[in-house]
Design a protein around this nucleic acid. Structure first.
Length: 557
RNA sequence: GCCCCCAUCGUCUAGAGGCCUAGGACACCGGCUUUUCAUGCCGGCGACAGGGGUUCGAAUCCCCUUGGGGGUACCA
């Protein structure tokens, strides 16, 4: 029985965290499946053994789940068309390329990487287009075995038909490729594993994928896949090539961006001798040779290493992976909403959608053709309004999730729900959960561990002359606050004392609140001051004021 | 180099020949609110890449130029 339902898939490689480009591809495939009551399949494309990263598959699945894009069939949940990991489908691929070999649609080739490089360089020198030279006679099975015995690499190449290919595309219309545009490509690598082209075609057939929504970087691959489908007698799914997500500078948004940002700053830091090469290499957990190679753009470092290096030189890494946005304090639905609008619009002015609403509104025909820049300012704005509109329980959940991925946050230690809720209430107007931390974090560090921002202390406590200085105001105010009955340390009581104090001295509230703020939080930013003091408690407040006074005096000396 | 895709405010986009003196959102600028930082509210600036056609009429159709992007692997 043939299933007539739409079947889409997302097929990432387990090389690291999920990238926003991949997330958008996954989202569109998910939306199409959901809105047609179809099936969304997750397949792991792990045919490049050298690039596979341990643990990456789990991260990928976690990121996808975090976004709310649950799949119906996949490596972990199973399904009737598995296995869903390409590494578990090797015999199936072998069966197929045997067929191609037998029917003369593919042939063995024994070129080494160096030989191929030489051919390409030669073509380049002649300003000619490199095409793999198809031999006139093809090696036999026996030849292949002999080559293997001699230690030569043995691959299988597909005979790309020398005719024009027209790719029907939902977004682009029909895209034509000249007859000699593509050459004979490798379908089986010398390690015996299939290439992407080979595996993807077989899997899409086996998994009965009806619609393939993928990035435009795959456009040139599609005629290859169609040729392969023809040779194997498969049907061709509906294709839609998505516009590419770019950085604000117009370059393709990718994982390399992090390397780029860190590399630039590290180079500066090394030049200015703010950091030593040896210690930087240590942070990156690699040898000095590897580190030098990385500096020369010869390699990439993993997210964690880049994070440590970035921290050492004091830069924020650009967010490019879903996990980065999670760690920065965005709600998944915000990222989903934003991503959906990168290349798609319903045709009206509406911009805010939940995932469910997207499932209903989404139409693949309405996907745009132009590449879109990833504007973090706009995302931030989406986040701001979403957080403002979110119901308290959602906010609490989101904050919890933020703290799970940011265990070093001073807020991570908050055990009771009411305190965390209170903090969220006090930080209303936040743009991300990170804002909650920067604004309210200081309230939850130990009174004696509180760090004072020197610039803030100088500006707020030490500026001006004797009786009018913030420091003097603070000292006088401390005495007033100390008079409050410990059991009556409430917002109202604090407010009354502080306001009376300010009025009595003919000072605006700002002149009093700021010194207080710097004293109890170490910085010029905090939630409303009375609430802040109430939450810190009387002992904490007085203790912090004493420390601030001491600190200011030592700076002043 | 070659192949392919794309082209409306700085950015994301609406616009499928007359509804366009081009709409919305973000950013930006100005103002208001304010105990800090945010938030919020009001207002403003701001685009059809250029050149040819087609048509009574073009942001919308065609061609060229220019610009941007992607691909050009035993990576996916």
């Amino acid at each position: 029985m043939t299933d007539t339902r739409v079947r889409t898939r997302f097929a990432p490689s387990p090389t690291g965290y999920l990238h926003v480009g991949g997330a958008r591809t996954a989202l569109f495939n998910y939306l199409l499946a959901r809105q047609t009551n179809g099936v969304f399949v997750l397949r792991v494309e792990d045919t490049d053994r050298s690039r596979n990263v341990a643990g990456a598959e789990q991260k990928l699945l976690d990121d996808l789940r975090w976004l709310g894009l649950q799949w119906d069939e996949g490596p972990d949940v199973g399904g009737n068309h598995g296995p869903y990991r390409q590494s578990e489908r090797l015999t199936r691929y072998e069966e197929c390329y045997r067929t191609l070999l037998d029917q003369g649609a593919a042939y063995y080739a024994f070129d080494t990487v160096d030989e191929l490089d030489a051919l390409r360089r030669d073509a380049e020198r002649r300003k000619a287009n490199f095409r793999y030279p198809r031999p006139t006679t093809f090696p036999s099975e026996r030849d292949a075995q002999r080559a293997r015995d001699e230690g030569r690499p043995v691959v299988v190449r597909f005979k790309m038909p020398a005719r024009e290919f027209r790719v029907p595309d939902v977004i682009l219309g029909e895209v034509a490729f000249e007859a000699d545009a593509l050459d004979d490509f490798v379908i089986v690598k010398s390690d015996g594993w299939p290439t992407y082209h080979c595996a993807v075609v077989i899997d899409d057939e086996d998994m009965q994928i009806t619609h393939v929504l993928r990035g435009q970087e795959h456009l040139m691959n599609t005629p290859r896949h169609m040729a392969l489908q023809e040779a194997l007698g498969y049907r061709t799914p509906v294709y839609a090539h998505l516009p590419i997500i770019l950085n604000m500078d117009g370059s393709k948004m990718g994982k390399r961006d992090k390397d780029k940002a860190v590399r630039a700053t590290i180079k500066e830091a090394l030049a200015a001798e703010r950091i030593e090469s040896a210690s930087a290499a240590q942070l990156a957990r690699c040898s000095s040779d590897e580190f030098a190679g990385w500096l020369k753009k010869k390699s990439q470092l993993d997210s964690e290493a880049l994070g440590r290096l970035g921290q050492a030189v004091g830069i924020e890494l650009p967010e490019v992976q879903v996990h980065d946005f999670r760690a920065s304090g965005y709600l998944p639905e915000v990222l989903v909403n934003f991503l959906a609008l990168l290349g798609w619009s319903a045709g009206d002015d509406r911009e805010r959608y939940t995932l469910d609403e997207l499932c209903t509104a989404f139409r693949p025909e309405r996907i745009g053709r132009t590449n879109a820049r990833f504007d973090r300012d706009k995302l931030l704005s989406f986040s701001t309004t979403a957080l403002a509109d979110a119901a308290a329980p959602r906010l609490l959940d989101g904050m919890r999730d933020y703290l799970v991925v940011n265990p070093e946050s001073p807020l991570a230690g908050i055990q009771d729900e009411s305190t965390l809720s209170k903090v969220l209430e006090l930080t209303a107007g936040m743009r991300t959960f990170r804002d909650v931390e920067t604004k309210a974090g200081a309230m939850f560090v130990d009174d004696d561990a509180l760090q004072f921002d020197t610039a803030a202390v100088r500006k707020v406590l030490l500026k001006g002359t004797a009786p009018a200085r913030g420091l003097d105001v603070l000292e006088a105010l401390r005495a007033e606050l100390a008079r409050i009955d410990a059991t009556g340390w409430t917002v109202a009581a604090i407010e009354r004392v502080v306001r009376e104090f300010a009025e009595g001295r003919g000072l605006g509230l700002g002149k009093v609140a700021q010194p207080l703020r710097v004293a109890v939080t170490g910085a010029t930013i905090s939630p409303a001051i009375f609430e802040t003091l109430a939450l810190i408690g009387m002992n904490g407040t007085l203790r912090r004021i004493d420390r601030a006074i001491e600190h200011a005096q030592s700076l002043d000396a």
